[in-house]
Design a protein around this nucleic acid. Structure first.
Lengths: 143, 143
DNA sequence: TAGGATTTGTACGTATGTATT
DNA sequence: GAATACATACGTACAAATCCT
C-alpha cells in the first residue's frame, strides 16, 4: 500500500489509515514502538508535517501514546469494574486539558461522568474503568 | 490577558486556555461563532499555525465544532436516556475515523460502548446519550 | 447567475528547543 | 558530550468550500 498525493483523501489521513490498519491487523502490536517520524518521511516521500498530523489523528483516537522518544501502540490497561446503583446516570466526554492533568489521564482518553441519584458526580478515566449496572445500591469496586 | 512567547507554556496552549476560559465564562456562548483564525493572529502577533493548534485542542476537547466557514461553541445536544439492565457494562473510548463517519459523530465526541450480559455490544455517541441503570431488564429509551 | 472575498484545509519549508539514549 | 527524535513556532503557497455582492 502506498500514498497518493493526488488522491481525494489528504496525505496525512491516508497515512493515518495505513498505520491504523497495521495496528488493527496486529502488525503493530500493543506496546510496540512505531517507527520514527522520519521513517515515514523517507518511506513515502511526504513531509514531516503530514506524518505528525497522521500521528496526531491516531493519538486522538487513543490508539497510540506518544512520548518524547517515540510513539507506541496503546496497551489495554487493566480496568477496575465500578458497580453503579439503579438510577445512577453515566455519560462520557473528553476532558479539558486541566482535567487531564489533574486526573492524570493520557491524551485520547475520555472520562466517564457518573451522576448518582443524590446529584453527586464522579469522573473516571475511561481506559481504567468499566461501569456495571447492579441491582443493589452500592458503588464498590470489584477488580 | 495576553500571550507570552517566552513563557514555559507553549503559545498554542496559552491561546487554548484563553479561549477555553472565554467559553467557560460565557463570553463565548453556545452556538456563537469564534473569531476567524486570522483574528487571533493579528490580535496576539502569533502564527496561524499556533492558532490552528489551539483550535484543534479545543475541538479535541469537544468544546467547539469547526466547519469550513468557522468554529462555533458546541451547543448541548439533547440526549436520549438509555436504560440498561443489571449486569450490563459500559465504558467509553474515542472512535476511529471510520467509526466517526459511520456513526455520524463530530470530532471530540467519545462513544459509549455498552456490553449486554449476552455479549452484544452497542456503540452510542456520548453527546447524544445518557446511560441510566435500571432495576429491570429493558433497554428502552426514555427521552 | 457570476464572481470575488473570506475562511479553513492541506502541505511544504526552516529553525530551534528539549528530553532521552 | 553527541546523536536521535519529538515539540514548538515561524514562514509560504495553493485548494476548496462558503458567503456576499
Amino acid at each position: 500500500m502506498t500514498i497518493d498525493p493526488n488522491a481525494d483523501r489528504p496525505v496525512y489521513k491516508q497515512l493515518a489509515d495505513l498505520i491504523r490498519a497495521r495496528i488493527e491487523s496486529g502488525e503493530y502490536r500493543p506496546g510496540q514502538r512505531l517507527p520514527a517520524e522520519n521513517h515515514y518521511v523517507a518511506e513515502y516521500g511526504i513531509s514531516r508535517d503530514s506524518v505528525r498530523r497522521a500521528i496526531a489523528v491516531l493519538r486522538g483516537e487513543g490508539l497510540i501514546v506518544t512520548k518524547l522518544r517515540g510513539s507506541r501502540v496503546r496497551e489495554a490497561g487493566d480496568a477496575d469494574t465500578i458497580s453503579i446503583a439503579p438510577g445512577t446516570q453515566v455519560t462520557a466526554r473528553m476532558p479539558t486539558e486541566p482535567e487531564r492533568k489533574q486526573l492524570g489521564i493520557a491524551e485520547g482518553v475520555p472520562i466517564l461522568v457518573i451522576t448518582e441519584t443524590h446529584g453527586e458526580t464522579r469522573k473516571l478515566p475511561a481506559d481504567r474503568a468499566i461501569i456495571e449496572a447492579s441491582t443493589e445500591a452500592s458503588t464498590d469496586r470489584a477488580g
